[in-house]
Amino acid sequence: MTMNRETLINSILAIALVAVPLIALGMDEPFIITLATKVAIFAMAGVGLNLVLGYGGLVSFGHAAFFGIGGYAAGILASHALNYEPIMESPFLIEGTTQMIIIWIVALIVSALVALVIGAITLRTSGVYFIMITLAFAQMIYYFAISWPAYGGEDGLSIYVRNGFPGLNTLDPISFFALCAVMLAIAMAFSAVLIRSRFGLALQGARQNPQRMTAVGIAPFRIRLVAFVVSAMITALAGALYADLNRFVSPTMLSWHMSGEIMVFVILGGVGRLFGPLAGAALYIILEHLLGGVWEFWQLPLGVLLLLVVLFARGGLVGVLAGERKHV
């Protein structure tokens, strides 16, 4: 019965995400479409984090690093293309691009490599050490972005024209929303398949009982490392979309507040639940929009709400509505 209720809530969430921008289109409210696009992108970043946080039980407090890497991949490639400056001339020519698909591939590769290095070091530790070290590595990249002057440093980098996607006018809000929503759907479907696979079961097993996993011949470290890399790649893809949404990328995307926010989307919605990040991101954006319109210091009530969720509503929004307590 409860499972049905969660499925029902998930369906409502999915329908709302598609219906709200369409209604906004009919009412000629492009701002609401932009808000919905933001929800889709943040939810996708959360889907990435949820993989390690929810299913792997690894509290990464540094996912802004990957979100920002995706953003900078979009910003740097676009700026080179728009300024007609090749990124590299020797030994072979590499030019910038304004094609989203190429940007995404670059974002995926770079984030995977960085996550591989960070994961290989941080996954040697556990518990609080893991939390603090993922945070510290993200800060390292943040400070690097601030002090490296070539791509705007602290001021960030503008993308003058939103990058392109074949057959789509990405400057049209509803088209860009559709693109982001499809990407979110792919990420969620991929994540759903992954957690039901042998790999996903091993990842959850490593969370529940690493000794037993080792005893049956599965090394938790390697499973976790792969999960960390995949999680980083999904979040980086969201970051590339976010940079294109704002047509701007700055070190703020790499800051630890961003890591905290991505974590908040996941927890507010429900840790280890497929639709948790979507519910959390939607709630966050709605609160930001409603409270922010009324009171300048809207983060104060947000903090109180978050505190109440942590102390009293441990399954997050989906958990409370579905009335079922899960792990974590």
């Binding site: 946080l53 509290v59 407090f61 908040v264 927890i267 840790v271 903090g303 978050l306 102390l311």
Partner: peptide
């Protein structure tokens, strides 16, 4: 667990 601690104290920072 540490996740709850991180989140609750993150909320405290906002406040």
């Amino acid at each position: 667990d540490h996740l709850d601690q991180v989140l609750a104290t993150f909320a405290l920072i906002l406040i």
